[in-house]
């Protein structure tokens, strides 16, 4: 396997894992399970399903992008593909 193929394979698996988290935060917890999660209230705040849909999921999105950028910077270095 060439360096490019190995690099691309690692990139794809990272993308896959992060998109699973992306879908869990928004579509699974924020939408599909919003009704049951609304039975839970943390710290006396709003119901959890509502909070994830209107607040928590957005925090997850921001963290995912910065995490991806830093992991890819390491991957670029590992394979000598930095720009």
């Amino acid at each position: 396997m060439s360096a490019l193929e190995a690099y691309w394979k690692e990139n794809l698996s990272l993308i896959r894992n992060l998109l699973i988290i992306w879908a869990l935060a928004s579509y699974v917890l924020g939408i599909l399970l919003a009704e049951p999660l609304n039975a839970i209230r943390v710290f006396g705040g709003p119901p959890l399903g509502f909070w994830i849909a209107q607040q928590g999921s957005i925090y997850v999105f921001v963290i995912l992008i910065f995490y991806y950028a830093s992991r890819m910077a390491a991957l670029d270095r590992k394979y000598g593909f930095e720009d």
Binding site: Q54, S57, I58, I65
Partner: peptide, 20 residues
């Protein structure tokens, strides 16, 4: 609650943009 379509919909796309 249903307003979340705009909150998530107009932010979550940046994850796709950055990764893909």
């Amino acid at each position: 609650y249903d307003g979340a379509v705009y909150l998530m919909g107009w932010t979550g796309g940046y994850v796709l943009l950055a990764l893909l």
